Lab assay of single mutants.
Amino acid sequence: EEEEKKKEEIARLLGVSKEDVERILKKNNLDIEQLLRRVQREN
């Protein structure tokens, strides 16, 4: 699934687990696209 791939990509870029990414998304109330763009910009 596309969303899972995005979570895995974010996890890889941040050096965290996919579960961490899911927690970040919930905690910050971000959607996956916003987080992915933010992470890609910083790297």
Rank of each mutant, 00 (worst) to 15 (best):
E22Q: 05
R37N: 15
E3T: 12
R23W: 13
E19H: 09
N29T: 05
R12E: 06
I24L: 11
K6R: 05
E33G: 05
E4P: 03
Q40C: 07
K18T: 11
E19R: 12
K7C: 05
V16S: 03
E22M: 08
V21S: 00
N28S: 14
Q40H: 07
R38C: 09
E1H: 11
R37H: 14
K7A: 04
E8I: 11
E19V: 10
L25Q: 02
V21K: 00
Q34L: 06
R38F: 15
K7E: 02
L36R: 03
K27Q: 14
E8F: 09
R23I: 12
V39L: 15
K18H: 06
L14N: 00
K5P: 04
I10T: 04
Q40K: 09
N28M: 14
V21H: 00
S17R: 09
K7P: 01
E3I: 14
E8S: 11
N43A: 13
N29S: 08
V21Q: 00
S17D: 05
N28A: 13
E9I: 14
N29G: 13
E42V: 08
L35R: 00
K18Y: 07
V39W: 03
L30W: 14
R23S: 11
E2Y: 09
L30K: 02
E33K: 03
K5W: 14
D20M: 14
S17P: 06
K5M: 12
L30G: 05
L25N: 00
K27A: 14
L13Q: 04
E1R: 12
R23P: 02
L35M: 05
K5D: 09
E1L: 13
V16D: 00
R23T: 12
Q40T: 07
N43K: 08
A11M: 08
Q40F: 04
N29C: 10
R38A: 15
R23C: 13
A11E: 01
R38V: 15
E33Q: 05
Q34F: 05
D31A: 06
L35W: 06
K7L: 10
E9W: 10
N43T: 12
V21L: 03
R41P: 04
R41S: 14
Q40R: 09
I32M: 05
L25D: 00
N29I: 04
G15L: 03
V16K: 05
L25I: 09
G15I: 02
E19I: 10
L36W: 14
N28E: 15
L36T: 02
E4K: 07
K6F: 10
E4L: 09
E33N: 09
L30S: 03
L36C: 05
L30T: 07
D31W: 02
R12P: 00
R23M: 13
D31K: 07
K7V: 10
K26M: 11
R38Y: 15
E33H: 08
Q40L: 13
E22F: 03
E8D: 11
V21R: 00
R37E: 15
K27V: 14
N29W: 04
N29V: 04
L36S: 02
N28K: 04
K27H: 12
E33S: 05
N28Y: 15
K5S: 10
I24A: 03
R37F: 07
N43E: 09
K18C: 07
L25C: 06
V16M: 07
V21C: 00
E1D: 12
E8A: 13
L30Y: 11
L35N: 00
R23K: 11
E1P: 12
K5T: 09
I10W: 01
E1V: 12
L14C: 06
Q34D: 14
R41H: 12
E9P: 00
E9V: 11
E2R: 07
R23G: 08
V16T: 06
D31M: 05
K7F: 06
E8N: 11
N29R: 09
E33F: 04
K26H: 10
S17V: 04
I32H: 02
G15D: 04
E42K: 02
L30D: 05
L35Q: 01
E9G: 03
E22G: 04
G15E: 04
Q34S: 12
K6E: 04
E1T: 12
R41W: 07
V21Y: 01
L35F: 09
N29A: 06
G15Q: 08
E22K: 03
R12L: 09
E9K: 10
E33A: 05
L36M: 06
E22V: 07
E33R: 03
K5R: 14
V21D: 00
K18M: 11
Q34A: 13
E8K: 11
L14I: 05
V21W: 01
Q34P: 01
E33P: 02
E3W: 07
